[in-house]
Amino acid sequence: MRAAGRAYGRAMTQTTSASRSESGTAPPLVTMREVQKHFGDLHVLRDIDLEVDAGEVVVVLGPSGSGKSTLCRTINRLETIDSGDITIDGSPLPASGPGLARLRAEVGMVFQSFNLFAHKSVLDNVTVAPIKVKRMPRREAEELGMRLLERVGVADQAQKLPAQLSGGQQQRVAIARSLAMQPKLMLFDEPTSALDPEMINEVIEVMTDLAREGMTMIAVTHEMGFARRTADRVVFMDAGRILEVAPPDRFFTAPESERAKDFLSKILHH
């Protein structure tokens, strides 16, 4: 699965921008149309339209409170939406029940606070969903789990509890846990924001590898280096709206909106 995925993925990432504009035959993996979301009186997502193609890496930027987390969370329906449509790989998000669970299994999510299952060993964290949700035999799941832990560089910690690991290690386990479900899409919500500076790179490296292997990703992150090097597109949000969508080189050198200029000057000169 890995080798095939990698080859396929490379081709996808390398041709993404071209194929997006030219052929446009493959349907987008994620489509959000006119999505609206309120928290009480607060209008947190306004007229969100976004398409993400298979193999694409989208980085979401924006000031705190602009709705980035909420955007991610609506895509696997950890938050409901008030109106609009979200489809994943052509299927609309079901409201609840087994259909929703199946769909969630295809969308991995990595949280700022890792959220590893505190009472389970590192390996169990990675194997529990394949075993319980996909009914994968335990041995197979453990082989897969060890392969994934090796891939993110924490195989030697497999028998420990999450609390015994550093933040960077925990976040890499969390990524492995999501990958164990073989998702079509990975969502990252500020995966490095809770980490000490010296641990940020180890997580960014894993994410970069994943992108290179062709994983479709939507990542909220303040790691501008990652955005510049790895993103196919940058989505800039402010006050619940998507204000700009641009390739990273254009966004970072010539942002269009005042809000984006303002945001970049704060981020880049702090």
Binding site: N76, L78, P98, A101, R102, L103, R104, A105, E106, V107, G108, M109, F111, S113, F114, N115, L116, F117, A118, H119, V128, A129, K132, V133, A174, R177, S178, M181
Partner: peptide, 30 residues
């Protein structure tokens, strides 16, 4: 039990019952 625990379980495709039995209750009993 931290809400993130149940959210992680949901995001992995667990049902409400699995979420409770596998993730939330074992920690709640402690």
């Amino acid at each position: 039990v931290a809400v993130g625990q149940a959210e992680a379980a949901r995001s992995l495709g667990m049902s409400f019952g699995q979420n409770l039995a596998i993730v939330v209750l074992p920690q709640a009993f402690r």
